[in-house]
């Protein structure tokens, strides 16, 4: 479980490489199948609107899965993630067009902890809104 990033090489405030993740209706259908979450709010526009949503929304767990990629791409070894938590603050609304939606993720080192671990705070935005809150990971560095 050795990470490629060295603890000594990071400081509080060190930014991880940011990334953007596109989401279309096809992405959500694929994720529904892979995750086993077939809630119709993630693929059926009529149903989503009937329960008061503006349109089909992405699975919160899909957004959570995308956001941590900024950390796992940074460490190389996803096994370096020791803790990861989020709050689902706003839905990612996915229109039925070629564009879909975009999840934009930035992250920075918020604290250096014991045992060569760091706390990374993540920000995930879509359509100008913060879609994850309290989004934090504890990461084991080398």
């Amino acid at each position: 479980m050795t990470a490629q990033i060295q603890y000594a090489d990071v400081e509080v405030g060190t930014e991880l490489p940011a990334a953007s993740f596109p989401v279309t209706r096809a992405t959500l259908v694929r994720y529904a199948g892979a995750s086993g979450d077939f809630n119709p709010i993630h693929w059926n526009e009529k149903f989503a609107k009937e329960v008061g949503l503006p349109d089909v929304i992405a699975h919160g767990m899909f957004t959570m899965a995308e956001a941590i990629r900024v950390v796992t791409d940074w460490t190389g070894d996803p096994g370096a993630v020791v803790e990861y938590g989020v709050r689902f603050t706003k839905p990612v609304v996915v229109p039925n067009d070629d564009q879909g939606a975009l999840i934009e993720v930035t992250a920075k080192v918020a604290a250096k902890l014991d045992d060569k671990r760091v706390r990374v705070d993540l920000t995930a935005m879509s359509a100008g809104q913060k879609v994850l809150g309290m989004s934090r990971a504890v990461v084991q560095l080398g």
Binding site: M1, G60, M61, M64, P78, G79, V81, V82, E83, Y84, G85, V86, R87, F88, M134
Partner: peptide, 13 residues
Amino acid sequence: VVHGDQKFAYVRP
């Protein structure tokens, strides 16, 4: 029901 928060603590992957 909606999903409010989610957290994981890993001993190993």
